[in-house]
Amino acid sequence: MLFSTRASVTSDTPQGGQLAGAEDPGIHEKGGWGTDRAVGRRLRVFWRRFSRSRSAVLGLGVVFFFTLVTLVATWVAPHDPTALIAQPFISPGPRYPLGTDNLGRDVLSGVVYGARVSLAVGFLAAATSTLIGVIVGAISGYLGGVTDALLMRLTELFQVLPRFFLALLVVALAGPGIGKIVFVIAILSWPPMARLVRAEFLSLREREFVEAARALGVATPTIIFRDILPNALPSVIVAGSLDIAQAILLEAGLSFFGLGDPNLTSWGGMLNNALAFLRTAWWMPTFPGLGIFLTVLGFNLLGDGLNDALNPRLRSR
């Protein structure tokens, strides 16, 4: 997550954004990803760059695979993951490919449905935190002045709050529920995004095409969302995809503490349940753990690949 893109903008140093305010003429232009033809051209450029990296394509593949699993879970999963369908502790075999757990539930079905929770929490939390971060960062960076100062103090406050501790506390006290978990993760994850977007805006708002728009009397929201934001988008997409990985890990951590939603089968919850059987039923912790690991790995690879393709100057060669 904190690789090149955000490393430069996290600290409150004066040259924050120096690195991230990329100046690649291939992508950053007035009007951003303007016309259809231009979009098509840029997408082709993007894909050429992206597909050059095997690991990026692998990451995309993994993410695609788990997303697909999520969408077709109901058909793919052999059983209802909450149903007691067999004897407990059957080791993996032809009948139950990933074995059964301590209550006699099918582990494969649990892993399939668990992908749903992880991905849903990951996407929703990252999307929400991205949205908050973009709005705060855009307003802060574009308007500057007192608004900026106030919003940045707020951002700082959220950044020094111990994130995981607070998530633990809130979920423990408010009771588990997937909505609450998404909300808590989102509300605690937006500051880095806000800083990133602010830094982009700080550098972009001084650019010629923005000044031109301003001179033409274009309304501020239009400038923010139509002129500047599309140019900041590559960084946002990269950071957002890495945020998904973080949100998945955070949800797994909460569930590992037994704070997941007991009405949903999740990987973290399965791991928590497997704690007692680490030595007697190796398949119980192994597969959900692997699920988390692979999904997070997939999003990290994808994020790296996007980073290389969208911000070529920062490419880690």
Partner: peptide, 23 residues
Amino acid sequence: LPIAEIFRDQLRAVGIQLQLEGV
């Protein structure tokens, strides 16, 4: 939690939907 999970499965069989509220 596992007791509640057993309930969920067995009550479903008689048409009772069970919500787990573990706090």
